[in-house]
């Protein structure tokens, strides 16, 4: 589904990713972890085709992402964006409806099928009680859920999440993780998420990819990746701390 081969990305002369190769199959659920500045968000932008690698290649479903136009990428891959500031009063349903932009008719706009997808995404993420409200008046956590609903409405086979739980309380963190798991299990959506919380990552993702200074240093099950030595070496913290937070 996603295939990165030997990709190197440089920002202003500084390498953000060095010789990264990563294969993610259809229906997999993968969390990218690593300290700040490790290149996690860069990796997501690379997969989404917003960055071109200096060397190497990125493929989505067998096609090179740099040869697809943006609309074709958006039909394959949905991204939950970082919290934006909205310039105009925008209702919650209007934000969620933006997820249908890649599918709607170029002239006539949303069709009945699009409206149904919006309504279904609103139900599924559970933001129905926010309908009719200006998205700018919501709390950060509520906005994050609305943006998640937008990405769900996009109904792409790949869902990318960059820190989807930063603004959420513990209960919502768990619920978002369960929703993501449900999208993966029931709809077969391939999930690629950047997570800071190693506990959430270990609990909800069968496969973790650990990035450090632009390189993949470990790739495997939580038990394989989050060894005490690695946690000490990469994150520079006492591994006990991670074990306390991780449920197993």
């Amino acid at each position: 589904m996603i295939r990165i081969e030997g990709a190197t990305v440089a920002y202003r002369g500084r390498a953000a990713l060095r010789d990264v190769s990563l294969h993610i199959g259809a229906g997999e659920r993968v969390a990218i972890i690593g300290p700040n500045g490790a290149g996690k968000s860069t990796l997501l932008r690379l997969v989404a085709g917003l960055l071109a690698p200096a060397t190497g290649s990125v493929e989505l479903g067998g096609e090179r992402v740099d040869r697809l136009d943006r609309l074709a990428v958006a039909r394959r891959l949905a991204v939950v964006p970082q919290l934006p500031t909205l310039p105009f009063a925008t209702s919650v349903e209007e934000v969620v409806a933006l997820g249908r932009l890649p599918h709607e008719h170029p002239v006539r706009g949303m069709r009945p099928g699009d409206r149904a997808a919006v309504a279904a995404a609103i139900e599924r993420v559970g933001v129905g009680h926010l309908l009719g409200r200006d998205a700018r008046e919501l709390s950060l956590g509520e906005r994050q859920l609305v943006l998640l609903a937008m990405a769900v409405a996009q109904a792409a086979p790949i869902l990318i999440l960059d820190e989807p739980t930063v603004h959420l309380d513990l209960r919502h963190q768990v619920e978002v993780m369960e929703l993501v798991g449900d999208l993966n299990a029931r709809d077969g959506t391939t999930i690629l998420a950047v997570l800071h919380d190693l506990g959430l990552a270990a609990h909800f993702f069968p496969r973790l990819v650990l990035l450090d200074r632009g390189r993949i240093v470990a790739d495997g099950s939580p038990a394989e990746v989050l060894t005490p030595e690695r946690v000490r070496e990469v994150f520079g913290v006492d591994p006990e701390f991670v074990r306390l937070r991780a449920p197993r």
Binding site: L50, R70, P84, V95, L101, Q154
Partner: peptide, 17 residues
């Protein structure tokens, strides 16, 4: 419409920004 959420989000929604 895509630009409502900013340029990066617009790109993710299929807009050649």
């Amino acid at each position: 419409n895509g630009m409502l959420l900013g340029e990066e989000a617009a790109a993710h929604l299929g807009v050649d920004v």
